[in-house]
């Protein structure tokens, strides 16, 4: 069995352009001076509040049977979409990233004070920041496996497609949430909320793995996660 684990704290820079795009301001559309100033101020505040850290593990895919994927003795993913991806892969990379809970505490206190604009701005900045860490981990895994001539798929998280959010429990068997301060609620949500968990498929069949996109054959046109 091949197992590689990495846990680390990292530094990231809040990307204001990325934040503005998440809000809806496309490249040809600028915010009003007031909103631009607000985003700048709260990006600076966020920089002090976020504590980015991540953990990931790469494990062999032991067996895929219909919609069930077996990884070691303890983990079983159950999803047609994930099974179709991992039957083309030799390994799976499971990751967990977070910015900690300080930012969302501040977001809540701003909302409690009636400052919903400021609360919203900080919330979007937090979402942007955690997405940046997920991208960073994805890049790190890609670099690592490319040495073996392997490629990685796009990211998938419990709650995507037919992969139930309850399967967070299986994912957390692969990664120690405590190592980055993330726990699951009884409803399988992550606390801190500004956390992302998921997998990437890893294998030598680059064309099949990199282009795998279940959205192409899915009829849910209004799906929020459509790619």
């Amino acid at each position: 069995m091949s197992t590689r684990t990495s846990t680390a704290e990292v530094e990231i820079e809040v990307d204001k352009r990325h934040v503005l795009r998440r809000i809806g301001y496309k490249d040809d559309c600028e915010p009003s001076p007031r909103i631009a100033t607000l985003i700048t101020e709260y990006a600076q505040l966020a920089q002090q509040l976020i504590k980015p850290s991540y953990s990931y593990v790469i494990r062999n895919v032991d067996m895929v049977r219909k919609r069930d994927v077996f990884i070691g003795d303890l983990v079983m993913f159950r999803s047609h979409v994930i099974a179709r991806l991992l039957e083309q892969c030799q390994q799976v990379g499971a990751f967990l990233v977070t910015i900690g809970d300080e930012l969302e505490k501040k977001t809540t206190s701003l909302a409690d004070d009636g400052l919903i604009l400021e609360s919203y701005a900080l919330d979007v900045i937090g979402s942007s920041a955690v997405e940046k860490i997920a991208e960073l981990v994805e890049t790190e895994i890609r670099k690592m496996v490319s040495a073996q001539g392997f490629c990685i798929s796009r990211r998938f998280s419990p709650g995507y497609c037919d992969w139930s959010i309850r399967q967070q429990k299986e994912l957390f068997r692969m990664i120690d949430g405590g190592s980055v301060g993330v726990r699951l609620t009884t409803g399988y949500l992550m606390m801190p909320q500004k956390s992302i968990s998921g997998i990437v498929g890893v294998g030598p069949s680059c064309v099949d793995i990199e282009t795998y996109n279940p959205c192409r054959t899915c009829n849910k046109r209004n799906c929020l996660g459509r790619r």
């Binding site: 809000i23 007031r34 919903i116 604009l117």
Partner: peptide, 15 residues
């Protein structure tokens, strides 16, 4: 207007 502009106005109404 985008969400922040709408929120700024909503906040005014709240105050």
């Amino acid at each position: 207007y985008f969400i922040p502009d709408m929120l700024a106005s909503a906040q005014v109404v709240g105050a």
